[in-house]
Design a protein around this nucleic acid. Structure first.
Length: 271
DNA sequence: AATATTTGACCGGT
DNA sequence: ACCGGTCAAATATT
C-alpha cells in the first residue's frame, strides 16, 4: 500500500510537470506570435493551429489525468458498494449510484454544438433556479463498454443564447478516439481479457525515423505512468500495435493511452 | 423491428 | 420534505 501510494504520487507529479511544460511551450508560441505582428497588426508569423490546439488539449489531459490519479482511491472504495445491487429489480430495493467522484468541468456555448463524442439522452429536468430545462446525457457505449462519461446541457441565458454543458468523467470507450481515425482502440483477445489493443495505421507515419522515435516515446510514456508491467509490442511494417495490460484502473489507463496518442499526433506536426 | 427520446416515477442526499 | 439525478415504460423515429 505504501509503495502503491508513493507510485501514484510520483505519477501525479509527472503529470503536473508535463502539463506545466506544455503550458510553457504554448505560452512561448503565443508570445512569438504576438511579437511577430507589425504595427498595422498584420500577421507575419505562421502559428500552426494544430500545434496550439494540441498543446491546449495536452494540458487539459494532463490535468484530468492528475485528477483521475488523485481520485483513484475513492473510486476504488466505491466500486464494490454498487456491485451488490447490480441485478436487483426495481422494488423492493434498488441501489442507485448517486454521488460521483469523477472530475467535472463546464463549457459555455452560444449554440448547441456537437462535441464530437457520442451521447444518448436519458432524462431532462426543470431545475429550481433556472427557467430552462436541463438535459442529461450518458455515453452511447455505457452498456457495451461500461463507459462512465456523462454530461448535462442547460440553457442559461436568453438574449444572446448561451448553453452550459457540464461534463463529468472521461470517456473510456472507443468514442474518445473518434476524432483520430488513424487510431483504433479495441479488445485484444489474444491476451488477457482486460487488455486493450491500440493500433496505428502506418499511412500516417511515412517517415520511418519519426515513426520509430515516436513509438519509442510511446512505450516509455506508458511505462512511466504505470506501476504494473505493461506489454508493448512494436511489430511489423503494416501496423503498429501496442498491447496494454490493464485491470481495475481502466479510466487511468485509457486516459494515459489517449494522451500518449496525442504525443504522436503532435510529433507529426513537427516535420 | 431496432434504436433513440420523452416522460413521470423513483431514489438518495441534504 | 425538497431537489436534482436516474430509471424504465411509453412513445417517437429510423
Amino acid at each position: 500500500m505504501e509503495n502503491n501510494n508513493s507510485g501514484r504520487k510520483e505519477a501525479i507529479e509527472q503529470e503536473l510537470i508535463r502539463g506545466r511544460d506544455v503550458a510553457k511551450q504554448l505560452l512561448e508560441v503565443l508570445i512569438i506570435h504576438k511579437s511577430n505582428r507589425n504595427e498595422e497588426g498584420i500577421e507575419r508569423s505562421m502559428v500552426k493551429m494544430p500545434f496550439v490546439e494540441d498543446a491546449v488539449r495536452k494540458i487539459f489531459i494532463s490535468f484530468t489525468n492528475t485528477l483521475l490519479l488523485f481520485n483513484s482511491d475513492t473510486q476504488h472504495n466505491r466500486s464494490d458498494i454498487h456491485q451488490g445491487c447490480k441485478k436487483s429489480k426495481r422494488p423492493p430495493t434498488l441501489c442507485h449510484k448517486r454521488k460521483s467522484f469523477a472530475p467535472t468541468w463546464s463549457i459555455d456555448n452560444a449554440i448547441l454544438s456537437e462535441d464530437g463524442l457520442e451521447w444518448r439522452k436519458y432524462g431532462q429536468k426543470k431545475t429550481k433556479d433556472c427557467r430552462y430545462i436541463r438535459s442529461y446525457y450518458k455515453c452511447s457505449y455505457k452498456n457495451e463498454e461500461d463507459c462512465k462519461a456523462i454530461k448535462h446541457v442547460q440553457r442559461i441565458q436568453e438574449d444572446p443564447p448561451l448553453y452550459r454543458t457540464t461534463y463529468s468523467g472521461h470517456h473510456t470507450c472507443k468514442c474518445s478516439f473518434v476524432n483520430y481515425p488513424h487510431m483504433k482502440l479495441e479488445s485484444a483477445p489474444s491476451l488477457q481479457e482486460s487488455s486493450k489493443l491500440l493500433s496505428f495505421n502506418n499511412n500516417y507515419y511515412n517517415n520511418n525515423t519519426l515513426q520509430s522515435k515516436e513509438m519509442k516515446h510511446l512505450s516509455s510514456s506508458i511505462s512511466s505512468t504505470k506501476q504494473e508491467p505493461v506489454e508493448v509490442i512494436i511489430p511489423n511494417d503494416d501496423h503498429n500495435q501496442i498491447h496494454l495490460l490493464s485491470d481495475c484502473e481502466l479510466d487511468f489507463n485509457y486516459s494515459s493511452t489517449e494522451s500518449v496518442a496525442f504525443d504522436i499526433f503532435m510529433g507529426m506536426f513537427k516535420f
